[in-house]
Amino acid sequence: MRRFTLIAIPYAWLLALFLVPFLIVFKISLSDLAMAIPPYTPNLDLSTGWAGFKDFLSQLDFENFIWLTQDDLYWKAYLSSAKIAAISTILTIIVGFPIAYGMARAPEEWRATLLMLVILPFWTSFLIRVYSWMGILSQEGYLNQFLMSIGVISEPLIILNTNIAVYIGIVYTYLPFMILPIYAALEKLDESLLEAAEDLGCSRMSAFWLITVPLSKQGVIAGSFLVFIPTLGEFVIPSLLGGSKTLMIGKVLWEEFFSNRDWPVASAVAVVLLLILIIPIILFQRNEQKQREAEG
């Protein structure tokens, strides 16, 4: 009996506040926009019984999804989100790998401190971390002031409200997600493997490429998923740092909902985004599983 209660409480909570809302989103994505409250139709009316339910079902259709394929705003937004997420993932690897490498090869007594320094930004507000770049990247911002004062440029660079600012923002906020798994992989790397490679005729450099890089592959893959998946649906960064030309699906969804108040289309956008995300999520879990099996 006790076991039942223990399972039932969190289960019921998640069903009511996680699964049911999704089914509602799915249902509304099949509905039509209406000038009413709530602003969509049909509404399920159980008082009319089975006939009413059948009637309700017959009014659902895939119109909104067809609409998504017709208006090029949507598929361009999906594509552009994927492109931005992919490019920022690669940039994050380029920035994160040397840091993770440096941490893994740091003196033992330093590692805990370095690790804490990487995790610390997690605890500070995401919004504030993104916001802090607005002052740096704006036209009269600190970066332009600095570059002009040392004479590298004479005209201020336009960075804020471009995709470049979005890349910087994503790399900055998601960097710890990349560093931590790579660090975990590199820290496990047995130093005697590198010595063995040298003993067998490798230079330091080729030992790095032949041993260190392949053995940190799992960490890089895990980190890439951890950056790519949330970036795809990112809303705050493109809204604050991106410009009018920065097209990301999270932003489109937000505007569709709050500005256009077109709930059915917003729901359809969400359903498609979810479908797209399922692929990398499944790949990520496969990868994790493979890694666990290789270790166990």
Binding site: D190, S192, L193, E195, A196, A197, E198, D199, L200, G201, C202, S203, L210, I211, P214, L215, K217
Partner: peptide
């Protein structure tokens, strides 16, 4: 340097490269 010596070592942990097959491990040097 170690990579130029006509001396090879068998490590206590064996230090076999986990990402390479046995054939490639032996062919490595």
């Amino acid at each position: 340097p170690p990579n130029k010596r006509a001396v090879n070592m068998m490590f206590q942990s064996y230090a076999l490269f986990p990402h390479l097959t046995i054939w490639d491990n032996i062919a490595f040097g």
